[in-house]
């Protein structure tokens, strides 16, 4: 598959030089996304592949600032979407593209689709968000770990953590208690992912199984992709 951008892309990037692979793991908090990214990384490095990891809110440029802005709950939906896009673009230019150029396998613990789904749930214009991310590279594979919202909440509580304000969509609706808001909001995000599935060619992986079983499935699919 030849490398391409979703839209016009970034100026001055020679796509032919991006020899590596870009693999995306998407899924909600509690879907096992981070666990599986780490397991895949261990496996790939054991097999001798050089990897680079990126994810949401991990840019040098704005990660800390975005985090701080989210503490105040005054961040509007348009501002938040653009803040995340800035965070993404910084990692795209400074991590993803250089790593692909060096032939690395880039593992993205979430990519642009989470931000797209969130923006859709917040009733922002789809075309606006899509054009914003026309600078993004099309990944070699996208795996969406699909887990029912009730199971997500159970996993979060089991780890001794609490529901996150934004992940519960508290800025979208304030009608119910936080738990019921979380369930409704995650249901909406999940349907957005399902809607994007065909458009962006997601591989939907049932994440409501043991980590070992899910890992084996991901491994098998990536082996095909890499030809190992």
């Amino acid at each position: 598959m030849s490398r391409r951008f979703y839209g016009r892309g970034l100026p001055g990037v020679d796509l032919a030089l991006l020899r590596g692979k870009l693999i995306v793991i998407e899924g909600a908090d509690g879907s096992g996304r981070t666990t599986h990214t780490a397991m895949l990384r261990d496996w790939m490095e054991r097999s001798g592949y050089a990897t680079e990891e990126v994810g949401l809110k991990r840019s040098n440029l704005v990660a800390a600032e975005l985090d701080r802005a989210q503490q105040g709950n005054t961040l509007g939906p348009i501002t938040q979407t653009l803040f995340y896009a800035t965070d993404f673009a910084d990692q795209l230019e400074n991590k993803i593209i250089p790593a692909l150029r060096s032939g690395f396998i880039v593992l993205a613990d979430r990519y642009i689709y989470t931000m797209m789904a969130r923006a859709m749930v917040r009733k922002l214009d789809q075309d606006w968000v899509r054009k914003m991310y026309s600078i993004a590279l099309v990944p070699d594979a996208v795996f969406y770990l699909d887990v029912p919202p009730k199971v997500l909440a159970g996993r979060i509580f089991r780890k001794g953590r609490l529901l996150d304000y934004w992940e519960s969509g508290m800025d979208v609706r304030r009608t119910g208690d936080m738990y019921s808001n979380f369930i409704k909001y995650q249901d909406q995000v999940r349907s957005e992912f399902r809607r994007m599935r065909n458009q962006y060619g997601f591989d939907v992986v049932n994440g409501n199984r043991s980590p070992r079983v899910v890992h084996r499935e991901l491994q098998g699919k990536i082996q095909n992709l890499l030809g190992i």
Binding site: L10, P11, N60, L61, V62, E65, L66, R68, A69, G72, T74, L75, T79, L82, F83, A85, T86, A89, D90, E93, I135
Partner: peptide, 28 residues
Amino acid sequence: SLLVRSATRKGKKRQLLTPTTFALIHCT
């Protein structure tokens, strides 16, 4: 913007901004 200004200031001071991120951070 008070929410965004510190990020912009850091980006400029440390010269971290590319044309793309310069555009996005100002749009934010």
